[in-house]
C-alpha cells in the first residue's frame, strides 16, 4: 500500500511504537497489532459505539480515528479499566445490575458510561440515557444499563 508511518501510542499505561499504514484505524491498531480484542467493531459508520475507548481521558469511537491521529496520545481500553480481581465500579455495576446480555456492546458502553460520570458524577436517569445514546445495545433495552450506571454513580467513580 502506501508508505508506513511510525506511531507512538500509550495504551493502558504501556508505550507502543509501531509502523502502521496511514489508513489503519485505531480500533484495528488496538485489536490486530496489540491483541487488545476487548474493543469491538459493530458498524462502519460510527453509530454504534462498540469501539469506544478513552483518548487522553475522553471517550472516542476508535473506528473513527486513524492510529496515526492517536500518535502521542494516551489510550485506555476496556482491558485497562479494571481486572477480574479489581473491577472498576462501572464494571461492577454492569455485573450487579445485569447491564449486559451478549456482551458485545458492553466494553464500549462501559467506556462511555465512565466518561459520562467523569463529566457528570450524579446524572439523572434522563442524563444517563442521553449520555449513552451514542452506544447501541440490541439486547437489554437499556434499563439495566441505566441501573448499572446509577450503581456506579452511587459508589462514586473517581479516576
Amino acid at each position: 500500500m502506501s508508505e508506513k508511518a511510525t506511531v507512538s501510542i500509550t495504551v493502558n499505561g504501556k508505550v507502543h511504537e509501531e509502523e502502521v499504514e496511514p489508513r489503519l484505524l485505531l480500533v484495528h491498531f488496538l485489536r490486530e497489532h496489540l491483541g487488545l480484542t476487548g474493543t469491538h467493531v459493530g458498524c462502519d459508520t460510527s453509530q454504534c459505539g462498540a469501539c469506544t475507548v478513552h483518548i487522553d481521558g475522553a471517550s472516542a469511537k476508535s473506528c473513527t480515528v486513524f492510529a496515526a491521529q492517536a500518535d502521542g496520545s494516551e489510550v485506555t481500553t476496556i482491558e485497562g479499566v479494571g481486572s477480574q480481581d479489581n473491577l472498576h465500579p462501572m464494571q461492577e455495576g454492569f455485573w450487579e445490575e445485569h447491564g449486559l446480555q451478549c456482551g458485545y456492546c458492553t466494553p464500549g458502553m462501559i467506556m462511555s458510561a465512565i466518561n459520562l460520570l467523569n463529566e457528570n458524577p450524579k446524572p439523572t436517569e434522563k442524563e444517563i440515557r442521553e449520555g449513552i445514546a451514542g452506544n447501541l445495545c440490541r439486547c437489554t433495552g437499556y434499563q439495566h444499563i441505566v441501573k448499572a450506571v446509577q450503581y456506579a454513580a452511587e459508589k462514586g467513580v473517581v479516576r
Partner: peptide, 21 residues
Amino acid sequence: IKRREDPRLITGHATYVDDLK
C-alpha cells in the same frame, strides 16, 4: 443470581469470532 458469564465480558476478555487468530 448474578451471571457467571459476565466477568469475562465486562473486562474485555471474551472471545468472539473476530478475536480468533
